[in-house]
């Protein structure tokens, strides 16, 4: 009987381990008032410079066929609405997991026949920010079934895996200690709903993978290269974990 109860308690503990933080709070809620107002003011928000640049790139023909994003997709305000809330997702052709950056690259390769943009380049960040900003206010809603499942499980395992000289996993800060202070910073729940963000420390816009690299370097772990499968899996797990949070791109963080 006691063993049975114990088993139930352990099972319950395991299931809560994979749950969303309660209550769900976007990273902006942990930011100071001035950072919050910077994000909310669509003109002062420096991330909007990338969005503006993305809007220009959207209409700029690229590649041998002279096609722009807008040639096929038309007005991004309509065609891209809600798209970012569904990524990362399985690409139906390659059956591999891709994020929004990957989707844009794929269009460049397969439809525009244009050279790929470097990961984390201003151009790719600008287009990603422009596309993602069309989904502002729409809740994150990713699939985790079917082909997604294996990626999701790997992402979850990575989230709970202690790494680096500091021997810390994502969960040690972003589940166990959110809202507490780490130096002058308030630890957030670690959601990806505002990416690409303008980070004041970077003095530039950056992707969620750049943020992962900052965290990995912070715990003194080896960083994966940009675009690594490990990051994509983790992006999927985080999107599911922040399921329901509204997209805020371009976010501003310290």
């Amino acid at each position: 009987m006691t063993a049975c109860l114990l088993a139930i308690v352990i099972l319950a503990a395991c299931s809560t381990q994979a749950a969303q933080p309660v209550p769900l709070k976007s990273g902006v809620e942990f930011a100071s008032a001035d950072v919050r107002s910077l994000q909310q003011d669509d003109f002062a928000n420096p991330g909007m410079l990338w969005v503006t640049r993305g809007a220009k790139l959207w209409l700029e023909p690229a590649g041998s066929d002279g096609k722009a994003c807008g040639t096929c997709h038309g007005d991004a305000n309509r065609s891209m609405k809600g798209v970012a809330s569904r990524y990362p997702r399985i690409d139906s052709v390659s059956t591999g997991l891709i994020n929004l950056e990957g989707r844009i690259q794929q269009c460049r390769e397969r439809r525009q026949h244009a050279p790929l943009m470097a990961y984390e380049s201003d151009e790719l960040l600008a287009l990603t920010a422009y596309v993602a900003s069309q989904s502002r206010g729409i809740p994150v809603n990713v699939e985790i079934d079917g082909f997604h499942r294996a990626h999701f499980e790997r992402g979850r395992a990575m989230y709970y895996q202690r790494v680096g000289q500091m021997n810390l996993a994502c969960t040690n800060c972003h589940d166990a200690n959110w809202s507490k202070k780490l130096g002058a910073e308030t630890v957030s729940q670690g959601h990806g709903n505002a990416y690409p963000i303008y980070r004041l420390e970077w003095q530039a816009a950056g992707s969620l993978q750049r943020r992962f690299r900052s965290c990995l370097s912070g715990v003194r772990a080896e960083m994966f290269p940009y675009g690594a499968a490990e990051y994509l899996d983790l992006e999927l797990y985080l999107a599911w974990r922040g399921q329901g949070l509204a997209i805020e791109t371009p976010g501003v963080r310290r």
């Binding site: 003109f43 002062a44 420096p46 909007m48 410079l49 990338w50 640049r53 003095q203 530039a204």
Partner: peptide, 9 residues
């Protein structure tokens, strides 16, 4: 009047 310029400074 407000202006924002993209520049690395």
């Amino acid at each position: 009047v407000r202006i924002a310029i993209q520049h690395a400074m």
